[in-house]
């Protein structure tokens, strides 16, 4: 595969991006999971066609960010933009792909009247925490709780 060059362009997610997303996920997670990602991509496409984006370089999908605008859950009445799934081709780490995706998502949310954007970060992924911190995200009072049901 020839090396990709240039600045990524970011555009709205379409169902044609699935194979690119599957490829990125396979590179990062080590598993070929087309059905899983198809389910996720279809879900986001149905919920809000312009709410999720992909980054493209030389016609190849090199990153994706899936999200949605919601309110009324967890006691949050304010319409909030959510960034829920993020993936960047590891071969292009440090090339600004994630930043480009986030900038576009934040711009789109702002254009739709959103004033707060939320996400959740696993403490076991410091690089993700660092990414969102650099973007200006801060730890929130909302905390994830979980309980195992065996």
């Amino acid at each position: 595969m020839t090396a990709l060059s240039g600045t990524p362009t970011v555009r709205t997610l379409t169902e044609l991006d699935l194979d690119g997303i599957v490829r990125i996920a396979e590179k990062t997670r080590g598993r070929y999971e087309p059905d899983l990602w198809e389910d996720r991509v279809t879900y986001y496409l149905r919920r809000a066609q312009e709410g999720s984006v992909v980054a493209e370089l030389d016609g190849e999908v090199v990153g994706f960010m899936l999200g949605d605008i919601r309110s009324g859950e967890f006691g949050i009445e304010e319409r909030s933009g959510w960034i829920e799934v993020l993936g960047v081709d590891p071969d292009l780490a440090g090339r600004g792909v994630g930043r480009a995706l986030a900038d576009e998502m934040l711009k789109r949310y702002g254009a739709r009247g959103v004033r707060t954007v939320r996400t959740m970060v696993d403490r076991s992924m410091p690089e993700i925490e660092a990414f969102f911190t650099k973007l200006g995200f801060e730890a929130d009072s909302l905390r994830p709780y979980s309980k195992r049901i065996d």
Partner: peptide, 20 residues
Amino acid sequence: MPQMLREEAFHLAAGVVPLR
């Protein structure tokens, strides 16, 4: 058009998902 496009995204999936 925007709402029709949102719905059309599902229609495309209704075709491509079974094909896969």
